[in-house]
Structure formats: structure tokens, C-alpha cells
Nucleic acid binder design. Structure first.
Length: 425
RNA sequence: GUGGCCGUAGCUCAGUUGGUUAGAGCUCCAGAUUGUGGAUCUGGUUGUCGCGGGUUCGAGUCCCGUCGGUCACCCCA
């Protein structure tokens, strides 16, 4: 049998066939939470093509990015790549159409992104990433709004301040730190790389690199330890505190982010136990639209990305995937085949009333029908019965309470609508 | 791209220093039973032991290669 390609996933309906199989129900639950939270914050959904010109990515990141890309030559001889990130596409769209939209522009997307890399824990060749961005607002109020959206997206999935924390840092703070010690701005990238590897590389190696830019390991550690907020970070903290979200954020200058284009506040979301990779990351990139548009458009910008892979791992770890499965509202039992026509009419009336309903497509033993209703997590079963005098009635059973009611078939849809709009129990 | 570990039924896994015709539980399918049923009982399907080569009288078991998985590194999302 042909297997899926390495790093690509099959998504199964619940119950999934093995413990490590990916659940389409869970994916849908995550997507819906991302969407509803975004809309609640006034963000509009956009999308772009999954396949882009290779040049869109090499322009910004150079040729070395190509080895990380899922790229190929198409039948027309074009060099193309599956999108590895959404920001270049978004920057193009915004640069082209920003005049049609009032500022600030608040947009989100849930693209599937691709990378040609050996897969490992929390990292595949494909994933879905929630992207949210704001354009045209340079005040820290926008940073607070964006981070609040990130927090509430995670809260919407059942996670709390005990589960995750947003570590907030600032490129501007580090830039000031560096400028006080090193006059050469071209050293900034090397400096950021060294700070980024602070917890992973040997202290002597880091120290040596930092001394090249006029600093030292001890100095950098003291700076991180002090966590002195910049004025923009203080505004951010104040605004999040006013929203009651203060416990979700912490100033941590150890966060620096790899991407070269960040300019101001940067942040990453981590699980508190430190068991997983970063859940989400983002920050300000005030120069990027200017760069992508060839200098024609200048818009301050900020955004974040949150992948579905690490998030799903965290939700499973915290036991938050129950309830993510969608359940059926009604299952219509057909134990008496002579009542199939009337039962079909009943199914149709339920569906037209907006009640999700299923039934056996062919003559089936009654216990199997009932077990199917259980498997589909039906809220109610409906069974038509014929009295000795020929009158047909409907027996509606609530599965959780096991209570039953006998009503005329014409009233089944209305009755079920009433039942399913009450909490189960 | 580099390295460690792992590949036995749809799933979870047993399988003795290398020794008959490779097993269990669950799932699935069928039958029985139950009939205010969410059970129970019986039977059945499914394996080139990842693939290829080697050692051996004999390989699921040992060796080499390869593919896949997994974890770490590199890098990043």
C-alpha cells in the first residue's frame, strides 16, 4: 500500500485508529477556536495561493533558504515553492491593496505551510499555522491587541495561565544595548544569533562571540536578569493588565526570534512546563512592507504565527481534547422495515429543521443500530412504532438520561430541536 | 544534512541461547442472545515478521544495506 509522504499527515475522524493518528475533529475544533476568537477581535480572514514563485522567498531571505523549501520546477519551467510562511504573501497583498482598507488593518489566515526538512517532534514537512497581523498602527496598543488575541485563542481551547506564558522582549532594547558597546551596526545579526543560543551553546563559546561586539556573557545575563521594561513594553504590560491578562505575560529578554526583519517588540508563547517547542511567536516588522513593495508603501506592521502541531500535542498532554469531537443530534432507528418510508420522512424533517440526523441505510439488526447511535454520540434516538390499530407514533429517547417520550411523528423535529438546545443531562 | 534508538495482524503488543505450520487482547464482519437494547456468548477475515542481500542444516531472532518511524543536533515556523 502507498504510504503518505514523510512529514505529511492523514487526518481521521474520531475515534482515531491509533493513539498517534491525527484527529480531524481536533483539527476542526482548533480551527474554529482560532476563527471565532479572531472575529471576536475584529480580524478579517484572508488567504493566498499555497504555491508561490520561488523568488518571493529568496528575495527576502537569500538563496540559502532554498534548501529548506519544498520547491520544484513546474511544467512551464517556472521555479516555484510551496509556501513556507504566510508573511511574504500577506505583505504583497497589503502592499497592493492597502489603500482600499481603513487603518488599522486587522487580518488573519489559517494557511497550510510546507518545508522540506527531516521531520522530528513537533515539526513536520507540513503544518497549519494561525497567522494574525495588524498593519498601519505603530503604537504599542496594537502590540497589546495582538498579544491579547494570542492569549484568548489559547484560552479558548481550555488552556490557562498555569499552562502557558507569553515571553515578551524587544529588538529595540537589544539594539540600544548593542549600540552602547559596538559602533558597527553590521554586527547586530551575529549578536542576536549569540543571544538566541544562550541556553543551548557552551558558555565559553557564547562569551567569546559576545566579546567580539564589545560585550560579555555576564553583561548579557545581567541585562536579561534585570528585565527592565522599555517604555513600549511598559505600555503593553499596562494595557494587558487592564484587560485582566497580566498573568499571561512576562518580560524576558532571552527571547530574540531568529527572523532578521523584526524591529520592535517580539514575543513567544511557551508551555509552562517547558516540555514542548514554542507554541507561537511573533513581533513587529515595521520595515517589511516598505521592502516588499520596493519602497512604494510604508506601513508599520506586526503579527504572530501559531502552528497546529505543537498546540495539538499540548492539548493532548493537558487532557483538553475531550469534547472536541462533534456529536450527532439524532439517530433514527428503523427496526421495522415496513416503517422505512415513514422513518425516511422523519429523517428528512429533522434535517430540514437543522438537526443533524443519521439512520441505517439498509435493513440492520436492532442492536447494531443502537450501537451505531452510541458510537456517533447521538443526543437522542427516534424510533417509529405502529400501534395495533395502525396509528404510528414516535418514541424519542434521550441517551444520557435514558428518559423516553412518545409523540406524534410530525412533532419529532420540533421536539428534538427543543431537546438539543438544552444542555445534555 | 549528521548521529542514537525502533520496524511482528487494522490497533496495542508477546514470541525462550537461532529450532515444528508465528500468537494474544482489542477492533472489524457474521451468527446467537438481549428486546426500555449502551451488554454477553460463539465463529470468522486480516501477516512476503518494512524491503533487499548475507551467515546458517535452519533466521521474526545474527550481520550488511535500504526504506519508514522516532529522538537529538543543525536550522528555523
Amino acid at each position: 500500500m502507498i504510504q503518505p509522504l514523510p512529514g505529511f499527515r492523514d487526518f481521521y475522524p474520531e475515534p482515531v485508529p491509533s493513539p498517534d493518528a491525527w484527529s480531524c475533529d481536533l483539527r476542526q475544533h482548533i480551527f474554529e477556536t482560532w476563527r471565532t476568537t479572531s472575529r471576536r477581535y475584529g480580524f478579517r480572514e484572508y488567504d493566498g495561493p499555497p504555491l508561490e514563485s520561488l523568488e518571493l522567498y529568496t528575495l527576502k531571505s537569500g538563496e540559502e533558504i532554498v534548501q529548506q523549501l519544498f520547491n520544484f520546477t513546474d511544467k512551464g519551467g517556472r521555479e516555484v515553492a510551496m509556501r513556507p510562511e504566510m508573511t511574504p504573501t500577506l505583505a504583497r497583498m497589503v502592499a497592493a491593496a492597502e489603500r482600499h482598507y481603513r487603518k488599522p488593518i486587522k487580518w488573519f489566515a489559517i494557511p497550510q505551510l510546507f518545508r522540506y526538512e527531516k521531520q522530528q517532534r513537533g515539526r513536520l514537512r507540513e503544518h497549519f499555522q494561525f497567522n494574525a497581523d495588524i498593519f498601519g498602527e505603530s503604537s504599542p496598543g496594537a502590540d497589546a491587541e495582538l498579544i491579547a488575541l494570542l492569549i484568548d485563542s489559547l484560552r479558548g481551547l481550555g488552556l490557562t495561565a498555569d499552562d502557558f506564558v507569553i515571553r515578551v522582549s524587544s529588538r529595540r532594547a537589544w539594539q540600544a544595548f548593542l549600540e552602547a558597546r559596538c559602533a558597527d551596526p553590521s554586527r547586530a545579526y551575529d549578536f542576536y544569533q549569540a543571544v538566541d543560543k544562550l541556553e543551548r551553546e557552551k558558555p565559553e563559546v557564547i562569551d567569546e562571540k559576545l566579546r567580539l561586539v564589545g560585550s560579555s556573557l555576564q553583561e548579557v545575563r545581567e541585562f536579561i536578569q534585570a528585565s527592565q521594561p522599555t517604555s513600549e513594553i511598559q505600555t503593553l504590560l499596562d494595557e494587558l493588565g487592564a484587560r485582566g491578562l497580566g498573568s499571561f505575560v512576562r518580560v524576558d529578554y532571552g527571547v530574540i526570534r531568529g527572523l532578521a526583519y523584526y524591529t520592535g517588540i517580539v514575543f513567544e508563547a511557551f508551555d509552562r512546563k517547558g516540555k514542548f517547542r514554542a507554541l507561537a511567536g511573533g513581533g513587529r516588522y515595521d520595515q517589511l512592507v516598505h521592502l516588499v513593495s520596493g519602497g512604494k508603501v510604508n506601513l508599520p506592521a506586526l503579527g504572530f504565527g501559531m502552528g497546529d502541531v505543537v498546540l495539538a500535542e499540548l492539548l493532548k498532554d493537558r487532557g483538553l481534547v475531550r469534547g472536541a469531537t462533534q456529536s450527532l443530534s439524532a439517530y433514527v432507528l428503523i427496526e421495522e422495515e415496513s416503517l422505512r418510508a415513514e422513518s425516511l420522512r422523519c429523517v428528512q424533517s429533522l434535517r430540514e429543521a437543522g438537526v443533524s440526523a443519521d439512520f441505517p441505510l439498509a435493513a440492520t439488526k436492532s442492536d447494531k443500530q443502537f450501537k451505531r447511535a452510541v458510537e456517533l454520540a447521538a443526543r437522542v434516538t427516534v424510533k417509529l412504532e405502529r400501534a395495533p390499530d395502525g396509528a404510528i407514533s414516535a418514541r424519542v429517547r434521550e441517551m444520557t438520561s435514558r428518559s423516553e417520550q412518545v409523540i406524534p411523528p410530525d412533532l419529532v423535529a420540533a421536539h428534538c430541536l427543543g431537546l438539543i438546545h438544552r444542555p445534555p443531562g
